[in-house]
Design a protein around this nucleic acid. Structure first.
Length: 734
DNA sequence: CGCCCGACTTAGCACGCGCCAC
DNA sequence: GTGGCGCGTGCTAAGTCGGGCG
């Protein structure tokens, strides 16, 4: 395009910067250099220099430790907010429970009684689409969903690929995913549950187990408990890290009596080894328990699950995801987390906010205790919440992914991504045009969006410095995270990305970018006259970006691009790959397609500890199988010869041998496929994309290649994707 | 109108259960 | 019956995003 130079850089309207120059908490090392190095090799060939470079940078960045004071301020604010929140009890906790007598999909033996309440037929007539008065966004969204809903019971216009009827199914038995949902942010009308399960109380150590500080020393129960947290982690690398030790010691001292505090002044002098040995012995003992004992524990767990692991939301008994409160312990942040090692406090009933319907049987706090609050807010989905003491954030107990409320949200997410599919070309054209805008903020927005689209980067919200590990996403990229090469390895206009993303997973990538469309030139411009730790996009943040995206398409946000690109990639890759003849090869193809997505989204994992070994085992197996095969072939040959001699044209022996050869060949192939698959998978995690980014209906549609869903999804996954399995046909198109 | 926080999704890792080979 | 190991599952940290408030 000739527009390349139509705007002189000097003319750019600079406006004011969104983000001022920032002094970051300066200490970002990589979580595990060795790991990174390997990963890098795997993914990007051989850039050996970069790891070292990173390490050097880390050293450079140590001078500034300026942010500690922020914390107190931070805390103050939190308290205020908490106070304010108590007032805001909602008035909409009403509930009418209906009972669906024929609904045996969610069989609920225990709770049948609570289900048998008055039926309010009118209200639950979800076929009649009464659109209420609300005109808010959510309502709009809902309407969009309705348009593309598969209509099983009443087929309107078969507008969508998945809109076909499935007569064979009995929709009455299952959750009706196309049921009319509530409007105006109401998430449920009836919610009943038993509350959380608390962590077991601390059991003091037997008197023979000692803690040593110079000499044996008995700790107060409070101090002892915290000491055991540390003792249990002694084998972990964490306990060697300075920040971890510092934070731990500081918080531990808070739990000590004044005598203990006076005495124990140096963590280095603390000897936890006896405690540590004791716990190791305990865990051994647990493993060595008799069958009966193990069974007993299992039964007890099952009982707890049955009692606390389910709730009733509207007229269904639904599984709760995490009904156990997180036990106390030492905080294990990921990457270089400034708070690692801090004490994660024990959560008590008085910390707990319970959410349920007004007319439900309220969960009871343990005898002699009280909940912090019981509220009836049906505009949220959580059952229980509490505020965690490390970051001051709120933790929730919510439903399992198999639940209606989560499934529907999931479905909606993919529908939004499919809507993006319809207008992505338009959006791409627009951001390309915007690269040439005379407004700096628009150029930045356009380049950022390009990265988000092309590289599937995360949005990149700002983070509070010094509160978390120093990680970034697209909008929060800093100058130091990019390198520009006008020419690199024979390619023109290469951008090298090197930064830590979510969970401090390294993103390293070299990408050639469009010069004629000015990406490269824009980047040079954005980086001009800036320090390494200045923001690359200084006139952009996620809020600005998402507001813009919202204008381009209703419901569009940065993360929709990840979903869209992941799902569309899977679909394309599957079309390219799946022309193999047998099922195992097809599964391999599926996994490869899945892998392409995982690579796109940078979903990595540490190579499994047992990787080398298990690979060897597999090779041994393969060789054994090969031997077996040649044996079988030999036998077949001799059987054939034998049959010829005896002129026995339909020799049974020959037939059986033939079958044996075939079977072994199949087994061998299966093993070989498995080996390839595993090797390719060494450092790539497929699970995350499979669970969160790939429209499950694409996988369901793999029926058309003869791949049954069971081969792709295990039981839990099938439960999570019940909605997709229920509604998608083999001709589903994302 | 920016910032803060509540609600919800997405993320990797540890651990232990159950299955398979012997 | 046992031992090893691979996978599923639970756990909880760390993101995204929107709404409300000052």
């Amino acid at each position: 395009m000739s527009g390349d130079h139509s705007h002189n850089e000097d003319q750019i309207d600079c406006g004011s910067r969104v983000n001022s120059h920032r002094h970051k908490y300066k200490e970002h090392k990589h979580k595990d250099h060795k790991k990174d190095k390997e990963r890098e090799k795997l993914k990007h060939g051989n850039d050996h220099a970069s790891d070292k470079k990173h390490r050097d940078k880390d050293k450079m960045k140590h001078k500034d430790g300026s942010t500690d004071k922020l914390k107190d301020k931070h805390k103050e604010k939190k308290i205020k907010v908490l106070d304010g929140k108590i007032k805001k009890e909602k008035e909409n906790g009403f509930a009418h429970v209906k009972c669906e007598p024929d609904d045996d999909f969610y069989h609920s033996p225990k709770h049948e009684k609570s289900l048998k309440r008055e039926r309010d037929d009118d209200e639950y007539d979800f076929k009649s689409k009464k659109v209420k008065t609300e005109n808010d966004k959510k309502d709009k969204k809902r309407k969009q969903m309705e348009d593309i809903k598969p209509k099983k019971t009443k087929d309107k216009k078969g507008e969508t690929a998945d809109g076909k009827k499935k007569a064979k199914k009995e929709p009455e038995e299952k959750w009706k995913w196309e049921e009319e949902r509530y409007t105006d942010g109401v998430k449920w009308k009836f919610l009943e549950h038993k509350g959380p399960v608390f962590a077991p109380p601390y059991e003091p150590l037997p008197s023979k187990v000692n803690f040593y500080y110079d000499k044996a020393m008995r700790l107060s129960p409070e101090a002892e408990e915290v000491a055991t947290f540390f003792a249990k982690m002694l084998d972990h690398e964490y306990t060697t890290k300075d920040i971890f030790r510092k934070n731990f010691f500081k918080d531990w001292r808070k739990e000590m009596t004044s005598e203990e505090k006076a005495k124990i002044t140096d963590l280095k002098k603390c000897n936890f080894s006896e405690m540590s040995d004791y716990f190791k012995a305990q865990s051994e003992a647990r493993k060595a328990m008799s069958k009966e004992e193990k069974l007993k524990i299992k039964a007890e767990n099952e009982r707890l699950l049955q009692e606390y692991g389910f709730c009733i939301m509207d007229n269904h008994r639904e599984r709760i995801a995490n009904f156990r409160i997180e036990p106390p312990g030492l905080f294990r942040g990921r990457g270089d987390h400034p708070k690692m090692g801090m004490l994660k406090r024990r959560i008590r009933p008085k910390d707990i906010i319970v959410n349920c319907s007004r007319d439900s049987k309220h969960p009871q706090p343990p005898p002699g205790t009280k909940w912090k609050e019981v509220r009836h807010d049906n505009k949220v989905t959580w059952l229980v919440s509490w505020t965690e003491n490390i970051q001051g954030s709120i933790k929730y107990i919510m439903l399992n992914p198999s639940s209606r409320i989560k499934g529907e949200k999931d479905w909606q997410k993919y529908e939004t991504a499919r809507r993006l599919k319809k207008c992505v070309d338009r959006i791409r054209t627009q951001y390309r045009d915007d690269w040439k805008s005379k407004e700096m903020r628009i150029r930045q927005r356009a380049v950022a969006l390009y990265f988000i689209d092309k590289l599937a980067l995360r949005a990149g919200n700002e983070k509070e410095e010094g509160e978390t590990a120093d990680t970034v996403g697209c909008c929060s990229l800093r100058v130091e995270h990019l390198k520009l090469y006008p020419e690199n390895d024979g390619q023109e206009y290469v951008v090298e990305f090197d930064f830590l993303g979510k969970d401090s997973i390294r993103y390293y990538n070299k990408v050639p970018v469009e010069k004629r469309f000015q990406v490269f030139k824009n980047l040079q411009l954005f980086m001009e006259n800036k320090e390494p730790d200045d923001d690359l996009f200084d006139r952009l943040n996620t809020s600005i970006l998402n507001k813009h995206l919202q204008e381009l398409m209703d419901g569009l946000t940065a993360k929709v691009f990840r979903t869209y690109n992941a799902s569309i990639t899977l679909q394309q890759q599957l079309k390219e790959l799946t022309n193999d003849e047998n099922v195992p090869a097809k599964i391999l193809s599926y996994n490869r397609a899945n892998r392409a997505v995982a690579i796109l989204c940078n979903h990595q994992r540490a190579p499994p500890k047992t990787f080398e070994k298990s690979m060897q085992n597999l090779q041994t197996k393969i060789e054994a199988k090969r031997d077996q095969l040649s044996d079988a072939k030999r036998e077949l040959k001799s059987a054939k010869a034998d049959a010829k001699v005896r002129k026995d044209e339909k020799s049974k022996a020959v037939e059986t041998k033939k079958k044996a050869v075939q079977r072994i060949e199949e087994q061998l192939m299966k093993l070989e496929v498995q080996a390839t698959d595993r090797e390719e998978n060494k450092q790539i995690a497929l699970g995350t994309s499979k669970l969160n980014y790939l429209d499950p209906r694409i996988s369901v549609a793999c029926k058309k290649w003869g791949i049954p869903v069971e081969k792709i999804y295990n039981k839990t996954q099938r439960e999570k994707f019940a909605w997709a399995i229920d509604m998608a046909d083999e001709d589903f198109e994302f």
